[in-house]
């Protein structure tokens, strides 16, 4: 009786404590507010360059990272703010990086596109599509060879699936049974080009068959579905059974970057995805499961707002890098 009841519950509710679930929701909210704050700061001219926002993809980032520990690694993408926060980074140092400050994660050298908290196992966002995929496989090779027991989760987009590096990497990870999870966030468009126009297979997960590994397509806006797929793949990797490919179908509400004029998709399409807001859906699940009521949700939102405001303040008041130190960290400085 009890077993049946439990079996009907979503995976996330069965797998994680209420505390863990509330924390997952908090992280999703933090990602959303962080990116809104970044967008606002960009509009005010406080942020230089461009950025790629993942608003609408929060369940994908946080769900994927649920089974990971700080010892596990991720590689991230140009749309990597969510991955970075999901893997445990502090928003204050992220904002400081966006503002180009010495207190930023990359000391103002990397910006949005290279954001990472390496101490939490994030090997870096990457400005090159598919650039992080072989690196993730290399990290998995280290984990296997050095017997660290850790797993690497490799984020990439639907566009990266058409790069040679993707195919070469999946092949090698498979022949060497490496502990890596290839996690494709299919948000439907590689910049402006729809997956239907660029990709021969209907589901990117089908490509797993070519490399003799499990492949699964999940609703990327369903936190529990994402977490479940990630959980299974991470367990498999940790058990030494090799890589998996997960396709998490999601949608970015904003344009590709700040210069996108949205000519390739309709307002209706965007609105249909906004209606499937991953945060709203996950908050609803927690309400249904009596894990977080409306008041609790409000409190969570308020706390996140305060955290974001304090983080922006920290970034604004942080020192800028010294131009004289321009070439620092090009090479490792070694005592003479």
């Amino acid at each position: 009786m009890l077993e049946t009841a439990t079996a009907n519950l979503p995976f996330a509710v069965r797998q994680y404590s209420a505390e863990q679930l509330r924390e997952a929701l908090r992280k999703m909210l933090l990602i959303r507010r962080f990116e809104e704050g970044a967008e606002d700061s960009y509009t005010r001219g406080l942020i230089h360059g461009t950025m790629h926002l993942s608003i609408g993809q929060e369940a994908s980032a946080v769900g994927a990272c649920m089974p990971l520990t700080d010892a596990d690694k991720i590689t991230s993408t140009h749309r990597g703010h969510g991955h970075c926060i999901a893997k445990g980074a502090e928003v204050a140092r992220m904002f400081a990086e966006f503002f180009g400050k010495e207190t930023g994660y990359c000391r103002g050298r990397g910006g949005s596109m290279h954001i990472a908290d390496v101490t939490k196992g994030n090997l870096g966002a990457n400005g090159i599509v598919a650039g992080g995929i072989p690196i993730a496989v290399g990290a998995a090779l280290s984990a296997k060879r050095l017997k660290t027991g850790s797993v690497v989760l490799c984020f990439f987009g639907d566009g990266a699936g058409n790069e040679g590096a993707f195919h070469e990497s999946l092949n090698m990870a498979a022949i060497w049974d490496l502990p890596v999870v290839f996690f494709c966030e299919n948000n439907k468009y590689a910049m402006s080009t729809a997956t239907e126009r660029s990709t021969a297979v209907h589901n990117i997960a089908e490509r797993a068959a070519a490399y003799a590994m499990p492949g699964i397509t999940v609703d990327g806006n369903d936190f529990s579905a994402v977490a479940e797929a990630s959980h299974v793949a991470v367990e498999r990797a940790r058990a030494g059974q090799g890589p998996s490919l997960i396709e998490s179908v999601t949608y970015r509400w904003r344009g590709h970057s700040k210069s996108d004029r949205n000519r390739y998709r309709s307002k209706e399409e965007i609105e249909s995805w906004v209606a499937r807001d991953p945060i709203g859906r996950f908050a609803e699940l927690l309400r249904e499961q009596a894990i977080l009521d409306a008041e609790g949700f409000k409190a969570l939102e308020d706390a996140v707002e305060r955290e974001i405001a304090a983080a922006i303040d920290f970034a604004k008041t942080s020192p800028a890098p010294d131009p004289l130190a321009l070439t620092r960290d090009v090479y490792t400085e070694r005592p003479a």
Partner: peptide, 11 residues
Amino acid sequence: GIAVGAALTGL
């Protein structure tokens, strides 16, 4: 790239 990733993580 795998060599880069391996070098980055201890090999």
